[in-house]
């Protein structure tokens, strides 16, 4: 059986896998944006003509000069650039070339985050975290910086689970077992068959499902301390959790963003447990 723990004990291999998964995730994001390109025209839902009115810099001269960077044509060019960079990046050998390609992707991603004042989600932010870290690491190209980068990414991911767990733990709806059924009942993120099945199930089963998420998310920090193979169930749980969110709730980008960050957890665990 493939030994993940041993494989990801090497930071270079971690970076390689993170880069591959990030590129796959970003390619999907970019192609999705291109598929709805019309929405970025002045009368679209992502209209810069309207979005710019919300920025604090609306009267800033520099902001006016940079206005062309956020329009429809520039947006298409930016997405094509991301696609090009994401295709080349996994095969690039030279660290400086990698740093340049990531700098382009990173700059555009940050520009999009700045532009899209509504409609962004946590997966975009996790991709930004990963990209900035990859850029710093490849630019400086030092083993110490590579390691620090992996520790930072894993810290952010562990924090994300623990915060989500605590936030659920203080919620009466989550503790009382109503939260999942309520979310599954919405047409926005839910699923009719699952909502019907959960509403027909016992209260104890719904409480178990909610507490399962609360407990695992709250204890997720243990992945960095538990010796191999005891931390693996947490990562399998996380993988299945994001797969469920992608398949049932349509949150496909979260799956790639979190999966891309998982090698850093393996690495930090190896660093701590030896």
């Amino acid at each position: 059986m493939f030994n993940f723990s041993q494989y990801f004990s090497n930071y270079e291999q971690c970076y390689q896998v993170i880069t591959w998964l990030t590129c796959i995730g970003l390619l999907i994001v970019s192609f999705e944006y291109l598929a709805i390109h019309k929405e970025f025209k002045p009368d679209g839902v992502y209209s810069w003509k309207v979005f710019r009115s919300r920025h604090n810099f609306i009267n800033n001269r520099l902001f006016h000069r940079l206005d062309f960077l956020f329009g429809y044509t520039a947006f298409i060019v930016c997405q094509l650039l991301i696609i090009g960079c994401c295709i080349i990046l996994p095969f690039a050998q030279d660290h400086l070339l990698k740093a340049i390609l990531i700098a382009i992707i990173c700059l555009i991603s940050l520009m999009i985050s700045f532009r899209n004042i509504v409609g962004a989600d946590g997966s975009d932010q996790l991709f930004s975290i990963i990209l900035l870290t990859l850029f710093i690491s490849y630019l400086i190209n030092d083993p110490f910086i590579y390691r620090i980068g992996l520790i930072f990414i894993s810290g952010q991911v562990v924090l994300s689970y623990v915060v989500a767990g605590i936030a659920k733990g203080i919620s009466q709806k989550w503790r009382g077992g109503q939260a999942i059924i309520m979310i599954m009942n919405t047409k926005t993120y839910g699923h009719e068959k699952i909502a019907t099945m959960l509403s027909a199930s016992s209260r104890a089963f719904n409480i178990f499902l909610c507490w399962n998420i609360i407990v695992v998310e709250c204890l997720f920090f243990a992945v960095i301390f538990l010796p191999c193979p005891w931390f693996i169930p947490f990562l399998i749980w996380g993988f299945l959790f994001h797969l469920y969110n992608a398949v049932i709730m349509g949150l496909n980008n979260f799956f790639w963003a979190f999966l891309a960050a998982y090698p850093s957890i393996f690495y930090l665990n190896h660093l701590i447990t030896g």
Partner: peptide
């Protein structure tokens, strides 16, 4: 938050503490 123009500070409280239970 006002100064986080590039949204690099995530908020990780997914669907909590009050999950969205209404469709608009």
């Amino acid at each position: 938050r006002k100064f986080d123009y590039f949204r690099i500070l995530p908020r990780w409280t997914f669907f909590a503490p009050n999950p969205g239970t209404t469709d608009y």
